[in-house]
C-alpha cells in the first residue's frame, strides 16, 4: 500500500508567540519548530499500516527551507521518502491554493491512501485534507481514530460529538484526516536517524505547481484578542500570589 502523509511544520508548542510589527503574521524569527501535532499521529498511523500491510510511506510537506528539518525527522521515524513543496516563508494564500499544489505534486504518485492531520496548530483551518480529497477526486472521512483494512477497502473509526463514534467503510484510494492521541507515537531510533540521511527528498518549487494562485479568502490582520472578562491576574513570587488568590476565593468569590 502506498501511503502519503501530509505534514506541516508549526511553531513548537511551548513557544512564546508575538504578533509581528505589521500585524500580518507572528514574529517567527527566533522560534523553535516541530511537526504539527495531529500530523505526527497521521504519520504514526501511516507507519503502522505500512508495517501491517507492507508498502511505502511518502511524506508531503509544503513550507520554506526550515521545514526540511521536520521532513528529516519524519524520515528518521521510518518514512521512506519525501516531497518538499518549497514555498515562501508565509506559504500559499489559502487552503484551496495549497491543496491544488499538493494534488499536482502527487499526480505521478497515485497513492492508495492519503493521510493528513485534522487541523493545523497555526492557521487551524481544519480543511486542507478535505479540500485535497475533493481536488484529487477521492472519498474521505475526518477525525479518524483507527484504520483497518476491510475487503478491498478500509474501515475507519470516526470521532463524533458528545462521546459518540461511528465506523465508516470506504474504497481505496481515499483520504483520511487523523485525530491526535489515538495511539502512542514512536521515537526515531539512532539507526533511523542515520538512514534518514540517505532517503530521497524531492524538492519542487511552488511555482512549478501553479505557484501562489488566486486566494478566495484573505487574512487581513492578526492580533491578540481583547479580554471579555475582567480577570484579576497575580504574578510575582508564588507564595504571595497563592496567598492573594486564596483570600480572593474565600472572601470575594466565596468559592471556597
Amino acid at each position: 500500500m502506498k501511503i502519503v502523509v501530509a505534514i506541516k511544520q508549526a511553531p513548537s508548542r511551548d513557544s512564546q508567540l508575538k504578533v509581528n510589527a505589521s500585524g500580518s503574521w507572528i514574529d517567527d524569527a527566533d522560534l523553535a519548530w516541530e511537526i504539527n501535532e495531529p500530523d505526527a499521529y497521521a504519520l504514526e498511523a501511516g507507519l503502522q499500516l505500512k508495517e501491517k500491510l507492507t508498502g511505502e510511506v511518502v511524506v508531503l510537506c509544503a513550507g520554506p527551507e526550515r521545514a526540511g528539518q521536520t521532513i528529516r525527522e519524519a524520515l528518521a521515524k521510518g518514512a521512506d521518502r519525501a516531497i518538499h513543496i518549497e514555498t515562501e516563508k508565509y506559504g500559499p494564500a489559502d487552503p484551496l491554493v495549497l491543496a491544488r499544489m499538493m494534488a499536482r505534486a502527487l499526480e505521478a504518485e497515485k497513492p492508495d491512501l492519503v493521510l493528513t492531520g485534522l487541523q493545523s496548530d497555526d492557521l487551524g483551518y481544519g480543511q486542507t485534507g478535505v479540500i485535497l480529497a475533493e481536488v484529487m477526486g477521492l472519498p474521505h472521512a475526518t477525525i479518524i481514530m483507527n484504520i483497518e483494512p476491510s475487503g478491498g477497502g478500509i474501515k475507519v473509526k470516526r470521532e463524533l460529538e458528545d462521546g459518540w463514534f461511528q465506523h465508516v467503510e470506504m474504497p481505496l484510494p481515499a483520504l483520511l484526516t487523523i485525530q491526535s492521541g489515538a495511539t502512542k507515537l514512536r521515537y526515531a531510533t539512532l539507526m533511523g536517524i542515520k538512514k534518514a540521511k540517505t532517503r530521497e527528498v524531492r524538492r519542487v518549487a511552488a511555482a512549478e505547481l501553479g505557484g501562489a494562485g488566486e486566494a478566495s479568502i484573505r487574512l487581513e490582520r492578526i492580533y491578540t484578542p481583547e479580554k471579555t472578562k475582567q480577570s484579576q491576574i497575580f504574578d510575582g513570587p508564588a507564595k504571595e500570589a497563592a496567598a492573594k488568590l486564596v483570600e480572593k476565593l474565600r472572601f470575594e468569590a466565596r468559592a471556597i
Binding site: 507572528i26 487551524g124 487581513e220 492578526i222
Partner: peptide, 17 residues
Amino acid sequence: VRQLFQGKFNADVRFAG
C-alpha cells in the same frame, strides 16, 4: 473574525472574488 494558534490570536478575514 476567527482564531489562530489555538485561540492565542484572532484574525480578521475577508472574502475575495
